[in-house]
Design a binder for these strands. Structure first.
Lengths: 238, 238
DNA sequence: TCAGGCGTGTGATTTTGCTCACATTTATTC
DNA sequence: GAATAAATGTGAGCAAAATCACACGCCTGA
């Protein structure tokens, strides 16, 4: 742990006690899922939620006029599909596995019973939701209040918090992201992203080395969003 | 209950059993709060959450460069501040009472204990979060994917679901909203809102009678968002 | 009753971001 | 290593929305 990336965010599963982790795992089934597979589609009825043991899952919304919008990129220890607990509502997003993954699948009904019995696990779950809510709303207010540039900076900060690793020249975002991917995360076009990226490169705020983004001056980004002092936990992409 | 406003959304508190309602109320303190008072500010440490018995509370984010963004307008039976449960994180929004209100204030610590003991109340809380999450994310994807017009239509639909009452010419939104208020809900300017409002009036989609908006053709708005068939519960403003 | 405040309405100008079109570079595949 | 595909880079034109500037109506309180 260095000064650049002070600490990784603790994810839901890590926050549970050993004992609770075991209880939870006993109620699920481990499954292997290949990249490209879809865990559930928008509009379907919710049946399961998933814990990621290994791999990455992307949550997105897609519209009829085939616009796409990526909401989250979930990783190890994250929960996917929690927003369907325990409603009869149909799902509001699509979950797609983007790198081969090992997941634990839980049945909704099982979980409800488990939570009713183990109030303390339910409380951990509430914490998960609470953090998520804050994080999501913070993200969107960035996206809306500071234009596309703001949205872009916001997403960079979020990626650096969720996927950043220390690097001699700053923070390296340790996943491949095309311009188009980034565009889907902020609701813009790849051209606009490309121009913004190049502006930042020109000013030496970031650089790109074989497809990976390195952020040299994250404070520049934070300042633009008036977010110098905001807590790390809420600025995440997962 | 008519065909225009098929049913009011059931809010968190109403979904609890009588027994649970009583248990919950026993753990809180009833307070009266005047319009204009602030329950908590962005950046503070979270101490309480609130149940609205009567009145309205607005949740917003405010930035240094004094941009404002209204996230929710909560009403009777809604919970305010749940996103602070049970983290040590500082609050990410400001809660302001906008009409004189009667609230029940809960202490975080109390609630955590209560939930641990009564898993089933915790489960109800998880439902609240789950619905909220879906609703919020649906809203924001509208705001980002369909431009300012889309954002505006989205907000109108949400207000009609949360505050709409039947009216001979359509759905009346039963709260006063200035152009500026609406602008803060969608992250735009009052001028833009004004122009959009007038466009809708011109086409007889809506009209405004002494400050209250009446929606005549809500389907027009829905169609624009490709949202004809989407469930009522997630399109709310609270 | 009239002054001041607040909300609304509307034009002109500028900025931002999207669309389209195409060139170039970087990966893949056979 | 040539052929193809995928991703990046960039200009020009256009559309959407923000900004600025100001006029008007309506309520409210001295």
């Amino acid at each position: 742990m260095s000064s650049v990336v002070p600490h990784k965010n603790k994810r839901f599963f890590e926050l549970l006690s050993e004992e609770h982790q075991e209880i939870l795992l006993l109620h699920g089934t481990e499954i292997l899922v290949r990249s490209g597979q879809v865990l559930f589609y928008e509009g379907e009825d919710a049946k399961h939620i998933f814990l990621i043991r290994e791999g990455q899952v992307r949550l997105s919304k897609m519209t009829i006029d085939n616009k796409k919008f990526f909401l989250h990129l979930k990783q190890k220890h994250d929960i996917v599909g929690e927003f369907s607990l325990f409603n009869e509502m149909s799902l509001s997003m699509t979950a797609e596995v983007v790198t081969d993954s090992r997941l634990v699948r839980f049945d909704q009904k099982n979980l409800e019973a488990l939570f009713t019995q183990h109030g303390d696990i339910a409380v951990s779950f509430i914490k998960l939701f609470a953090k998520n809510t804050q994080s999501t709303q913070a993200k969107f207010s960035d996206l809306l209040l500071y234009g596309k540039t703001g949205a872009f900076y916001s997403i960079l900060i979020r990626f650096s918090n969720s996927y950043g690793v220390n690097h001699k020249d700053g923070i390296l975002i340790d996943i491949k992201l095309t311009n188009q991917d980034l565009a889907y995360f902020i609701g813009t076009t790849r051209e606009t992203v490309n121009r913004m990226l190049n502006d930042l490169k020109k000013d030496n705020i970031i650089s790109v080395r074989n497809g990976y983004i390195i952020i040299h001056q994250i404070d520049f980004l934070r300042k633009h969003l008036h977010c110098e002092k905001c807590p790390l936990e809420i600025c995440t992409i997962s």
